[in-house]
């Protein structure tokens, strides 16, 4: 009983000692606007649309990012260009709603949509937080610099013919029954 009371008192005292000692320790806080810490590339803030290594738009407007977005802040319209490439006729992210969860980046099959460490993009007018495709598109490849979706997809969009893409056999001849 006495031991228990002593134990209690000692452990509470230890707590007070710990917190009390902190008063004389230098705070570890980094003061934000005065000091800006360099953020790792995978930090999740302002979203960009990247390009493939040849400089073409990567986004194929597949609607996966807009489908997965938990707050429904991405909208777009897919379209087809003269080469048969599927692309986004318009692409809009409402950053007023975005929670920077990064699910869109995870869902993107083309590595087009990526979150960047640039978190300092606040606007006074909520409508200025609605970014259109031209505001989102950058001239970089971002985090996955070598990937070109259409080289793997197998559809013909002017890069190469059927069977000429990565890891494809030439088209089969269906007019012969020879093995």
């Amino acid at each position: 009983m006495i031991r228990a009371v002593i134990d209690i008192i000692v452990s509470i005292a230890a707590g007070f000692y710990t917190t009390g000692r902190h008063l004389f320790v230098r705070p570890v806080t980094e003061s934000y606007p005065e000091y800006k810490r360099p953020l790792p590339a995978r930090s999740r803030a302002r979203i960009i649309l990247t390009r493939d290594p040849e400089g073409r738009e990567r986004c194929v407007a597949c609607y996966l990012c807009s489908g997965v977005c938990p707050v429904n802040c991405i909208s777009m319209q897919a379209a087809e260009d003269s080469q048969g490439r599927r692309y986004a006729a318009w692409f809009r992210i409402n950053f007023g709603r975005c929670i920077y969860c990064g699910l869109c980046e995870q869902a993107c099959p083309t590595s087009a949509i990526q979150l960047t460490p640039d978190f300092e993009h606040i606007r006074r007018d909520i409508l200025d937080m609605v970014f259109e495709k031209q505001d989102l598109l950058v001239d970089l490849c971002g985090k996955d610099p070598d990937y070109d979706f259409y080289q793997h997809a197998g559809v013909v969009v002017g890069l190469a013919g059927k069977g000429d893409h990565i890891s494809e056999n030439p088209p089969v001849n269906t007019r012969t029954n020879m093995p």
């Binding site: 009390g20 902190h22 230098r26 705070p27 806080t29 003061s31």
Partner: peptide, 8 residues
């Protein structure tokens, strides 16, 4: 409280 928690 800040100082007790090693912040400003």
């Amino acid at each position: 409280l800040g100082r007790f928690q090693v912040r400003y």
